[in-house]
Amino acid sequence: MFEARLVQGALLKKVLESIKDLLNEATWECAATGISLQAMDSSHVSLVALNLRSDGFDKYRCDRNVSLGMNLTNMAKIMKCASNDDVITIKAQDDADTVTFVFETPNQEKISDYEMKLMNLDTEHLGIPDTDYSCIVKMPSVEFQRICRDLSQIGDSVVISCTKEGVKFSAAGDLGTGNVKLAQNANVDKEEEAVVIEMQEPVSLTFACRYLNSFTKATPLAPQVQLSMSSDVPLVVEYKLEDMGYVRYYLAPKIED
């Protein structure tokens, strides 16, 4: 028996919104420690890795590990039926071929349940080695979203260049060029407005705007985003979920031909 209850059901809605652009289907791996998911987009350029720890749920029971393969478009349809203040419970029997979502209003006066068919997915799991990144940038997630949106109007790619002084995002296209520079500023009133750079050596990497824009669908999940970069390895874009886990995206760089 698997059962996970989340009073803050809106969080689950937001998690789904943050991945459904990139993934049509994925397997939610449920274990005693929590729920995790790892999947590449169909072009194998980006990967989503998320983790929701069991202690972040209000009630969590997982008698044995279960893999819940889901069509995320269909899951999103069902999640749309939950109100933002609903309590959401996910339930599945061991070896079941369906999953049940229960939505309760805070006053318990309306209880809805939706049963969805599960899928048997052949998922490739990638081993991601621990890496010491040359540059780690922490910045407001809204700022990152804004920059990705703005620069995708200029070109298809964004060059992210990071030095001790700051981080620069650049794009070039038929109409011209655009650059956005952010200076390091740890001395702000609110922690979430800080731009903090930890640099071992400077890096400059090129990434496709399309994927970066998809990653920013996770913006409502966290006030800050963390970008981890090293030369010629995939970028990691991480949104930390308070007391719960994380949503991470990996993106393969573009390289000079």
Partner: peptide, 14 residues
């Protein structure tokens, strides 16, 4: 000109 790399060329399938 730039070409897009794929994640499989960086990470191994386990």
């Amino acid at each position: 000109n730039e070409s897009q790399t794929r994640l499989d060329s960086f990470f191994k399938v386990t």
